[in-house]
Amino acid sequence: MAATPTTQNLPTVTAYELKLAWPLGAFFIVFFLAPLVLLFIVSLYTDTTMTHFGLTQYAKFLLDPFSLKVLGATLWLGVEVTALCLLLGFPLAYVYLRVPGWAQSVLILIVLLPLLTSVVVRTFAWIVILGRQGIINTALLELGLIDSPLRLLYTEGGVIVALAQVQMPLMVLPLITALTRIDPNLADASAALGAGAWRTFWKVTLPLTLPGVIAGCLLTYAAALSAFITQTLVGGGQMLFMPMYLYQQASTLNNWPFAAAISFIFLVAVFAVITVFNMLGKISQGYANA
């Protein structure tokens, strides 16, 4: 801010960019960074009445196998959801580029449609689909494939599928953007040089879409981990993931210091996973460019 342009120096373009970032930066400092600092301070209290400082809350979490298991299960849930989104989303994005214009509009509408309804509504739809008298069970029963309804709701599988659907746009949109940017001539060139469809895909298309894949995976992963509503409604009260654990400590037990410590540990753990993922992405990108 102090470095305002003098008469000798013409203003550089980058100086403007920094200034323009100020409103958002200030907004983040006041409404994100400051509360985060407060949260961290709360996590340093040893008792629920918040009178003594200490690291007991962190010790309590990190030395407790059960808490660590909840953390692990949550991080793993994110991986499963992200993998499923990628598996289902990539072909969709791939098809999108190969259909005529009108079909593209229809596809993009279908992809965006979930974003236009609330997460609660989308999740309730899954309760209707997965329930004992839901669409899947009724269909299977009528076809005579099963004798009694399967347990689909309140299972980890149910949570993964529901989360994957709810977060799908976050995966598909970056993928479509990345795929659109690839020069179609590259695939033709690869074919002209004798590569088959699979080889072209693995050697040309996939490496070039890696930035989109990474962006999509990061968005989906973060969203799946923190999806309190979907996790709770489809997973039920006995499946414990970090958001629910946090809620329980903060709301039911009024144990704010422990809840704050849980949030911080969760935050750091997610950061670690994302960093590892980013590094993997960079390494594979290097490989693709080589």
């Binding site: 329930g131 004992r132 347990r151 009260g237």
Partner: peptide
Amino acid sequence: LSAVAANPGQLATLFQQGQ
């Protein structure tokens, strides 16, 4: 047990869905 609801309100949905 067919369900451990996360809150009492959820029980209503579960009855409605035949769960």
